[in-house]
Amino acid sequence: MKTLQTFEPEPALGGLAHTPADRPEPILRAGNTNCGGCGMSIGWQLLSRAVADRPVQLVIPASCSIVTAGTYPFSAYGAPIVASTFASAAAVASGLAHAARLNGEKTRVLCWAGDGGTYDIGFATISAAAERNEDILFICYDNEIYGNTGGQRSSATPQNAWTTTTPGGKDVPKKDLLGIMAAHRIPYTASVSMAHLDDAHRKLEHALATPGFRFLHLLAPCPTGWKSEPAESVSLVRMAVDSGLYAVYEVFDGNRVRINIDPTMSDSALERYIASQGRFRKGHADLKALRGEIDASWRELRARAGWASEEATR
């Protein structure tokens, strides 16, 4: 399938936001402590719309998003949340999911974790839950940094990005977690662009409805950590997609690969993406090299998707 719709029909999400299907109690309530322009917050709004009236339980490991909840006994979340230990989200969720199943409840159990809790400390747990094909939707909101602790590198931090623990810029590229998760042959793996609402909503809905372990990756700009303008959070994702830096695709059962957005591979978008973020200012971002890496990864992705190879060179 190559019909890829990247524009945004009006009204957004088909007007869902003002129909009764919209979740009356948002999952992320107003009055939360997230920074203005937080990409993770936008992710919650998208998730909230997709969840609609489904009963959900969420497990959130250590991350900004658990600090978001606020202090006892209040909650900035309009849904039940378990604040798990850093590495344990997928394991706690496994227990909750079985609890729901054993009791005939339709509750969907989700994990919502940052890149630290997914790529790094949580990885073994996630891999194991995926291997067991637990009935969990695991969403990684990836801000490419340990944001909660003030901005340290994770294995999701891109090459050349400045963090407090890579003061000269990170020396190695980020890990291809989506590829790794797909290799678990789980029912559904997908990357989600918040700049492409319909695609994002469709994926969230599909992931919520599909049984078994599902993994969604959401590129979530962090204005504080990325040193970017809060207002630009969505447009940064758009640039990442347009430039080819963030491939938007989905994998069914680990083997059927479908590219959802055929990017223009815009060099100017890449340039603006790098230039708009203070975190790349101290490193030595080599756009030409980066372009080469992006093109190479797209050749591989296109091959996996069964796209003709000539499309890889544009």
Binding site: V59, V82, S84, T85, A87, S88, A90, A91, V92, A93, S94, G95, L96, A97, H98, A99, A100, N103, A124, T125, S127, A128, E131, R132, E134
Partner: peptide, 20 residues
């Protein structure tokens, strides 16, 4: 649940227990 570590063994138990 046959987990991958003791850390997760307890985590899964916490999930079960939180589910009642």
């Amino acid at each position: 649940v046959r987990v991958e570590s003791e850390h997760s063994a307890m985590a899964v138990c916490m999930g079960f227990s939180l589910g009642g």
